[in-house]
Design a protein around this nucleic acid. Structure first.
Lengths: 207, 207
DNA sequence: CTATTTTGATGACACGCGACATCACATACT
DNA sequence: AGTATGTGATGTCGCGTGTCATCAAAATAG
């Protein structure tokens, strides 16, 4: 056998448990201090794991940050998608409202907000790839929504893709400023501003 | 006299000349490698100045980055404002188009784009303050444009401020992705996408 | 000419870093 | 039982960093 069990846990279980600890610690540290102030030593001190186990899972703090980002991106995706699917029968305006609301609720966690909007941008090539992939994914989702509203006309694919990117940037900046000012503004205001821009850009009459 | 002249230059002249060299070098290094990979030693090696002169002007690489940011922000402001004022007679749509065009032209310099959209966000409290100030300034400008179009109705100041922030975020993300993909997309496409979002969000009929 | 200031080059110091090695102890297998 | 493997604590290595001190050459001032 290649891996002996220990403490009642199989090798894989221990490995995954450690990975989860590292991911949680990473979210905490990156979200609190920023990646510029995080080192392998600090991660290990905070997580009470030896560097051996850090290197077993990740090559560098940057790699850990990317993993944290991917985990949170997936969580957000699941939550928002669930909200969208649960409101498929309602008018598109309400559907988007519920989706954005769940998104903002998630972003009300300052650590998540910081990692998703700030730190991922300064952790090298791999981080850029992930962010681009995620932004493009969201952008495509938006384009498909727009297509559902205006199926025939306005079919400039390239342009619409960039409009989608711009609308993602809208959310990003709103979340960033919201976070930076300590969430003093009510979520509803941020939601209203987002919705206003999104609906008008998608050609839906504002309510 | 407190400062002796040297090489035909007064003390103040030499000081300012060195500061300019440091700002130029900073833009080059921050824009090429990112602040995470820049140190006092590297700045000095690249600029051929001793660390004594670096510390005479700035406390840290972060402080230099902030100074670079402020210089470029002012340059952008001057250029965009000039474009706006030169087209005050034209319809608002065209005015905004010219302003955005000058803005994008500036952002076509990859070093400027990187510093303005990425690096400034991860250089500590002081950098955050500058970015917030700049974003709020631009946001206010947008709000005043909207006020000029719809003076009476829709007077929710708080909401409009956040809409302005969101629209700044639009530009930011568009520039970021444009830069990240090596400016392969024509400037005109980025401009069209920006304008589409801006005009619709400001309640101006799209052309 | 001489004294003072400015400049450039170099070295020194303590510190935190990534990365790896060592060693004693705990648990698991046979 | 005894052997093999997992685990945690600690130490060590070279490196780049921020910061400061030193020293010789160049230019200015009186």
């Amino acid at each position: 056998m290649n891996g002996r069990s220990y403490g009642g846990k199989t090798q894989r279980e221990r490995q995954l448990a450690r990975e989860k600890i590292l991911l949680d610690t990473g979210l905490e540290l990156f979200g609190r201090d920023g990646i510029a102030a995080v080192s392998v030593r600090k991660i290990c001190r905070e997580s009470k794991l030896t560097d051996r186990y850090f290197y077993a899972s990740f090559d560098s703090p940057e790699a850990l940050l990317v993993a944290v980002y991917l985990r949170e991106a997936k969580a957000i995706n699941d939550i928002v998608m669930a909200a969208l699917l649960a409101n498929l029968d309602k008018p598109i305006t309400d559907m988007l409202r519920f989706g954005l609301d769940r998104f903002l609720a998630r972003m009300q966690n300052p650590h998540i907000a910081r990692v998703m909007t700030l730190e991922i941008d300064v952790c090298g090539e791999r981080g850029d790839q992930c962010r681009d992939a995620y932004v493009n994914e969201l952008s495509s989702l938006l384009v498909s929504v727009k297509r559902q509203i205006q199926p025939a006309e306005c079919c400039d694919d390239a342009l619409d893709r960039w409009v989608g990117i711009g609308l993602i940037g809208t959310m990003r900046q709103l979340v960033l400023e919201w976070y930076r000012k300590g969430y003093q503004t009510p979520k509803q205001t941020i939601l209203d501003a987002s919705l206003h821009i999104w609906l008008s850009a998608l050609g839906i009459r504002d309510t």
